[in-house]
Amino acid sequence: MLVDSHCHLDFPDFADDLDGIVARADAAGIGRILTISTRVRRLGELLNIAGRYPNVYCSVGTHPHHADEEDGIPSDELIELTRHPKVVALGEAGLDNFYDNGSPEAQERGFRAHIAAARATGLPLVIHTREADEGCGRILEDEMQKGSFRAVLHCYTGGRELAMKAISLGLSISFTGILTFKKSQALRDLAAELPADRIMVETDAPYLAPGKFRGKRNEPSYVVEIARVLAETRGVSLEEISRQTTENFFRLFSKVPAA
């Protein structure tokens, strides 16, 4: 069994094909799908989707691109929203310096509010960090001193220093189809080095389709291709990487019922 630990089933790309997407994922051996929130105010849409499919769960959070739009949402509100049985994580939240979306100040405020909610609930935080290694590392270290919390750096494309800092803080790292791209050798080298109990796979669908599907709309069933490349990178079998990443998922996202 494999798990797609991060996708976006509420995005318009999937509106007319949800039944097919979930069915293809099931046929490919994808036992759980985690569809990730990008706007707290649109959580209802995610809950409607998660409610339709037994193996689909969701998070609640504000993507840094929407940090100004949802600036000021307190951690107490996030905590309350996690009481729904299908909400199993916070985020995605974090820092993004690649696009000029979301002011740095609002991004940091939102990031810290999500960390506080993760700390209070014990649920993991899904962290988005892009071109923001220094700032992300600083906030993670600062917040961890206030009290421990669980998290995963999703769609990892940062440097080795941030990855190792995250590992030292007890966090996890997740890889997308970027791992399969020809120009991603440095990322594969990092993936080979990380502890086996801290790695996961995801699609980030509808974006970043892996390998032979590149250029097409991504979907959860394609997580198998990412797992295959991760297995090759680490010199283990697909079966072993499937077992390990799935075990890691259920340990981190412990609110999701295990298979």
Rank of each mutant, 00 (worst) to 15 (best):
S221H: 07
S254A: 14
L230A: 02
A192H: 09
H114Q: 09
S75G: 05
Y222K: 08
H63N: 10
V224I: 11
A116L: 12
A116N: 11
A118Q: 05
D204C: 03
V224S: 03
N218S: 13
R198L: 07
A231D: 13
P257V: 13
L78E: 02
K165A: 15
T245C: 10
P124C: 01
E105A: 14
I199E: 04
F149N: 04
G94Q: 06
H84N: 11
D96L: 03
A205K: 03
K183H: 10
C136V: 14
L125W: 06
N248K: 08
D19M: 04
R228C: 07
G177V: 04
P64S: 08
G137I: 09
C58W: 09
Q244S: 15
F181R: 08
I127N: 06
A113N: 15
P210G: 03
A113Q: 13
V152S: 10
I167Q: 01
G61I: 06
T62W: 11
I127P: 10
L230R: 07
D204L: 08
E105N: 12
Q107A: 13
E108S: 11
E240Y: 12
G72D: 03
E202I: 06
T121E: 10
E141S: 13
T35G: 01
L90W: 03
L190M: 09
A258T: 12
R234C: 10
R130Y: 15
I199S: 04
E161W: 01
L179Y: 04
S254R: 12
D16N: 15
Y222M: 11
N248L: 05
A258L: 13
N97W: 14
G177I: 00
Y53S: 03
R32D: 00
C58D: 01
A15T: 06
R150Q: 14
A258G: 12
D71F: 14
L18P: 02
I178M: 04
H114Y: 15
V223R: 03
P104R: 09
K183R: 12
Y99N: 09
N248D: 07
D17N: 09
I30H: 01
P64N: 07
R24Q: 11
